[in-house]
């Protein structure tokens, strides 16, 4: 990890400093983030965990450039994205972020291929050779035989693969997955998680927001949040050791570390 950072200069991919977010719901004021600091390097695979109300969704929205913080700074790839306008943020999302959602969010009337192509519609000039790029992305997720299927002709796991292909199409800086296996059975969950690991091994930075330890166990590093602050930020081995998780996950994590 350190070597990779050195390769692209000293700047980490993501640098979040003193991030706060305050919502006003009616007369109530909710402090979703209270001065959060976080640094994530290139090609890391990080799980962000926390119970509901811990601020993990808010942090995900910030990291995904869907929302702006009340205060604090968010440097993505050396650019301060925390003060950008809606139009600039849209462009950053298009080029730097690949989203994977719990409920896939595919357009029902469009084929797998058309769904994967979607980000190119909003890309700056990047629409040439779109078909080849979309086919290559589908090939990477193992769906090259389902390109003309519509979402309702695909299984849950296949739908999530289409969504992942869409997310990695633009080779984003961050692949940001929000509970990506929340709607899948355990066998499919394992498939999808190993797909994430495969994509990570190909050099992609992956951030998975989850509340399941089984999902987090596939990552290298676990960031746990509570009350809008980082509670713990540990390599997977230490995180699991501290939580006395079943040994099967320890073994899995060990293999992951050995691989990295």
């Amino acid at each position: 990890m350190a070597e990779q950072n050195a390769g692209t200069g000293d700047r980490p991919l993501i640098q979040v400093v003193g991030l706060t977010k305050v919502y006003r719901v009616g007369v109530e004021t909710i402090h979703a983030l209270r001065g959060l600091d976080l640094t994530i390097g290139r090609n890391e695979m990080v799980a962000i965990m926390g119970s509901s109300g811990s601020g993990k969704s808010t942090l995900m929205n910030m990291l995904g450039c869907l929302d702006r913080p009340t205060s604090g700074a968010y440097m993505l790839n050396g650019r301060d994205v925390s003060r950008m306008g809606a139009k600039e943020l849209a462009q950053v999302r298009n080029e730097e972020i690949g989203f994977v959602f719990q409920s896939f969010e595919l357009l029902p009337r469009q084929t797998a291929l058309e769904n994967v192509e979607l980000p190119l519609i909003y890309a700056k000039g990047g629409w040439r050779g779109r078909r080849q790029r979309a086919l290559a992305a589908l090939d990477r997720v193992g769906l090259s035989k389902r390109v003309d299927h519509r979402p309702n002709q695909l299984s849950g796991g296949q739908r999530q693969r289409v969504a992942i292909a869409r997310a990695i199409l633009n080779t984003p800086s961050i692949l940001l997955a929000d509970e990506p296996t929340g709607n899948l059975d355990s066998a499919t969950t394992a498939e999808i998680l190993s797909l994430f690991r495969q994509i990570h091994s190909e050099g992609q930075t992956v951030i998975i927001v989850t509340h399941e330890d089984e999902v987090a166990a596939h990552c290298q590093r676990v960031v746990r949040l509570r009350d809008g602050r980082v509670l713990s930020d540990l390599p997977i081995g230490q995180d699991i050791a501290g939580r006395h998780l079943p040994s099967v996950h320890s073994a899995h994590a060990g293999a992951e570390r050995a691989g990295a």
């Binding site: 995904g64 869907l66 809606a86 139009k87 849209a90 462009q91 999302r93 298009n94 080029e95 972020i97 989203f99 959602f101 969010e105 357009l107 979607l118 980000p119 519609i121 909003y122 890309a123 869409r166």
Partner: peptide, 10 residues
């Protein structure tokens, strides 16, 4: 929402 997430400007 999805279109905005993948980069659609207003």
């Amino acid at each position: 929402g999805l279109r905005k997430a993948v980069g659609a400007t207003p």
